[in-house]
Computed example of a mutant assay.
Amino acid sequence: MFLLRLWASCSILFSFSKDKVMAEKDDSDLDKTTSIQQAVASCFGAIITSFFVAPLDVVKIRLQAQSNPFSKGKCFVYSNGLMDHICVCENGGSKAWYKKPGHFKGTLDAFVKIIQTEGIKSLWSGLGPTLIMALPTTVIYFTCYDQLSEALKSKLGKDDDYIPVLAGSLSRLGSVTVVSPLELIRTRMQSRQLSYKQLYTCINNEVAKDGWLSLWRGWSSTVLRDVPFSAIYWYNYERFKKMMCKKVGTDESAFFVAFTSGAVSGSIAAVITLPFDVVKTHRQTELWESETLKIPQRNCTSTWAVMKKIVANNGIAGLFAGIGPRLIKVAPACAIMISTYEHGKSFFRHLNEKKNQRP
């Protein structure tokens, strides 16, 4: 019922925007980017961001594996710069990229030795499977944000400060909802090494037993982190962008403006939502380990119950564990993604202008 209401709300907003554009179409409207152009720009942004940020996580996981080797069924978080994925340590032995032996003294030493002994390609190990998830999520997220923003601006006015909050929250909610079953399916295939036929049978049995909602297991913990993150991120991004444009005296699509605004707003959102990120990791790790090792889940399943457990064991500081590594990944990822996306849209806008100027 909730998904139907969300879909209905988005449909009304999109239809309103479309009618508005058709009714008031002029030359300036033709210079704007289309939804397809926005999708292409976000796709390129996702690839470039993943390319630059993924090596940081590969090195981090290799350092973790060196100090505390992963056992069979052990779960760990892998990030390609845009999304976090719970990965399961399989039987792969020392040949698996996350179990390869190393004698690293630190991060820089790990970079150098991995390139010297295994080749530079090893820094992007595991990137392919995660991009399969990241690309559709990013395309849906950024395209929906721009489309919803335009619809809301035409209805509420361009100066409404809460438009980025609403558009960012709805677009992230939609992208998480669409991709959540795919994430569950990907993890099942990875943990059990199922064929497509076996996977189909497994999903059918689960749906018959627990209903279709079982495909969205882990959805709530993801939403609790990603939706507030998006609301805070877009609100601060739009405000910082306007402030910088006034001070520097440049266009909002300028690469430096978008890059700086993205890094600052991403850092703020990452710090504020870190407790939900810690809870999400705990809950998803328990879920995936129960799937892999076939052991029953622990009783501590709700978000607030997990928070209480973390505070009881580690204090308030436990909710902000890993703040350094998270900022190191989130800040450059947000900066690269949004600046690349804005630059891509600027390219398409100039292309549209040239087409419209032709006789």
Score class of each variant (00 low, 15 high):
H282M: 10
E289F: 00
S125Y: 06
S9K: 08
H103L: 08
I48L: 13
C202Y: 10
V58W: 06
E24H: 10
T201N: 13
I268Y: 00
D19A: 14
L148R: 07
Y145W: 07
V58G: 09
A312T: 11
Q116E: 11
G45Q: 00
T222D: 07
S265T: 01
C202V: 08
T49P: 01
D19S: 14
N356K: 12
S195N: 12
G157E: 07
I203P: 04
D29G: 12
K105D: 13
Y341F: 13
F255N: 06
K99W: 04
K242V: 15
L327E: 01
F14R: 09
S302I: 01
D19E: 15
A54D: 10
A269M: 01
K60Y: 10
Q38T: 14
K242P: 02
T130K: 07
K113W: 04
S346Q: 12
G168I: 08
C144K: 02
K153N: 12
D31E: 15
S267W: 01
Q357E: 11
I132H: 08
D26I: 03
K345C: 11
V88N: 08
H282T: 11
Q147H: 05
V179G: 02
R62F: 04
I316A: 13
P129S: 08
S42Q: 03
I61C: 07
I232S: 00
M337A: 09
K242H: 14
Q66C: 05
E118P: 00
K345I: 13
K99V: 05
V279A: 08
E353G: 07
L4N: 10
V279G: 00
P332A: 13
L63P: 00
L30N: 12
R283S: 08
D109R: 03
E183S: 11
G93P: 00
F104I: 08
F229Y: 12
S42L: 02
F256T: 15
P275L: 10
V330R: 04
A208P: 00
L166H: 01
E291G: 01
